[in-house]
Nucleic acid binder design. Structure first.
Lengths: 354, 354
DNA sequence: TCCACGTAGGGAACCGTTTCCACACACGGT
DNA sequence: ACCGTGTGTGGAAACGGTTCCCTACGTGGA
């Protein structure tokens, strides 16, 4: 005899009474409850999760699917989710679904189908149609952090706005040759980066700078931003005076590249990012701030709301990123603008990479 | 009727036969097996994990406890673990146990006690005595990645060796004023960093440089390394000619700080780290390479071995980090050594012991 | 012919909970 | 005196699998 049966025996009651006493449901006299609790404490009783799940149909566990663990945004969201679940006594099962891998396929085919969770949080997952189908067919509530605005509940920042605001900031500082860096136009080009690129394009058009619109592809990582920036900044003549990066990691990569090439930030080059990354302060990076940890928390709340009320309509929480001005952006040096605009030789050309 | 009972009905067999057919255990005729499999496929049967766990006592799930998610080493180990579990069809439940938080206490008291897993991998957890007690009392196999060499199965690099080797590399290059950066002598000072500091001290003593031994405390993060390096490098007169960092993040922070202050790496300052971080290449960082992803994989294998053979003796896999020479370390400039040693102009004095 | 053994499959117990239902009792109102 | 109602409790049936044990049927060897 083990488990709650043992507790019941010790307390001199039936299993059902013991269950009620510990669960706090139904009628139990105070005296009995106390006796049961003491018995439970005495043998260090912990209910078997599998038995509870089987009986109740609830796993007390939340699934989290994300394509990367080692990038700032994702790690932060994950920590936010974890914190929030911890407070509520819920477990977290993690699925690492890297785009285009066998592992991802298996996760969608086998792992998720096991439904070891009451609900699912997908972070920046960008599922294809087939994957979306599998997700909905689970019959479990799903909340997306970063993702399509339709079909499911989602929490994210307004990417279009963030990129526009970033671009406008540079325009207001007098910049015209403003390039956008980040994202590869390949199969796995993330929607987020496309939306941000669109926001940048819109802002450029609105400012009458459509002709200066430039997209510099790059991996959306710090070394990726570094590598692409090295290429772009090498050519003194054609290089932009300002850069909008799709996220802070790329922006910081660009700053490091600039320093390496002797391009002064911000006097020779303004750089703005999106994120407010943990390194942003260290690099004096001007950026549009989002708080992924908070997004993780909100995602948990939304998911729990769907759990308690399955008929709850899907909702979209789209946050506005806030401009945080630091020292990586500054007004365009008039001399520089001469070079930048028509490529003729002027004082500015002296600022060469070393 | 649902689940396997439904499958059995469709195939015209009993529950037990269906179970045997799908599980591949016991005697089932090929024909029957086929019919059962077809029936299962037809209704898209997926066994209930809670029922399976309850019946078999196995959860097919591995718990992972770590204090940080957003640091390179931890994220890499986690990905290694995840990959490896994925191949084997096992789930992963994550517990984020930050030192000194309420959450950590709850994890040890409540979450782990639920035993939602067959075994546990603790990454850089550095549990106190009470926590160790709770861990062993779970009665589940535990594998540590980074941790005490005794009591449990552990996989890690030899920290002492890595730090010694790093220091010896600098000594061989003629450096004498070699400082060690990283780790705070406070309550949460990690054992890893202490062991590395010890390795550095040993190497310095062995080289007859005990007098030059210096520990610069710093947060074990990139901004932490940056901040501490800024302080140390500010004073031109007293600054070291070389730095051993407790890990690459700190090393890179130091390099960024140096660049910021106009201290040239490596001509004015050599920097060596431990890790081979994803940014190491980008910063041309000389380092002692470890492959945390691999450590995660090995941890899974060890854990599984303990699962199949509970009597398996505890083992220690301690890997040797390999020196990867890049461009952040170089031979000491003789003029510098003059200043460094005693202020007199004595070129010979620089090339000392070893 | 008989028996042992390998193969095939069904019945039922069991894993550890929750929860439905039945029952007993006390109490206040008619 | 009777009845409904609010409490407190126990028994037993789920939940959905696995596994033990038993039966039955060849088949080959003694």
């Amino acid at each position: 005899m083990s488990g709650i049966a043992e507790v019941a025996r010790l307390a001199g009651v039936s299993k059902s009474t013991a269950s009620r006493a510990l669960g706090g449901t139904g009628y139990v006299s105070d005296d009995t409850r106390r006796r049961v609790e003491e018995a439970a404490a005495e043998i260090g009783y912990v209910p078997s999760t599998s038995a509870v799940s089987l009986a109740t149909g609830r796993t007390q566990n939340i699934g989290v699917v994300m394509p990367y663990l080692n990038r700032w945004f994702f790690a932060e969201v994950l920590e936010g989710i974890q914190e929030s679940l911890l407070e509520r006594g819920l477990d977290l099962t993690l699925y690492d679904a890297k785009p285009g891998t066998d592992g991802r396929a298996r996760i969608f085919e086998d792992f998720l189908a096991r439904k070891r969770f009451d609900g699912l949080i997908a972070v920046g997952l960008e599922p294809d149609d087939d994957e979306v189908g599998r997700l909905v067919s689970l019959g479990r509530p799903v909340v997306n952090v970063v993702g399509p605005t339709d079909s499911t509940t989602v929490v994210a920042i307004d990417d279009d706005y963030a990129a526009r605001r970033a671009t406008e900031h540079l325009v207001a500082l007098g910049h015209r040759r403003i390039a956008f860096i980040g994202g590869q136009p390949d199969r796995h080009w993330a929607q987020v980066d496309r939306r941000r690129l669109e926001g940048y394009r819109t802002a450029m058009s609105d400012a009458g700078l459509a002709d200066f619109t430039t997209h510099i592809p790059s991996d959306v990582t710090l070394p990726g931003g570094y590598a692409s920036a090295v290429d772009v900044l090498a050519d003194t003549r054609s290089r932009p005076t300002a850069i909008v990066a799709t996220c802070d990691e790329v922006a910081i990569g660009a700053i490091i590249a600039a320093r390496r090439l002797g391009v002064q930030v911000p006097s020779d080059l303004s750089v703005i990012g999106i994120d407010d990354h943990e390194f942003a302060d260290m690099f004096s990076l001007t950026t549009l701030q989002q708080i992924p940890r908070e997004q993780g928390r909100v995602a948990v709340e939304l998911l729990l709301a769907h759990l308690t009320d399955p008929d709850r309509p899907k909702s979209v929480v789209r946050m506005k990123a806030k401009l945080v001005v630091r020292n990586s952006t500054t007004a365009l040096d008039p001399r520089q603008s001469a070079v930048a605009v028509d490529g003729r030789d002027s004082v500015g050309a002296a600022r060469q990479p070393r």
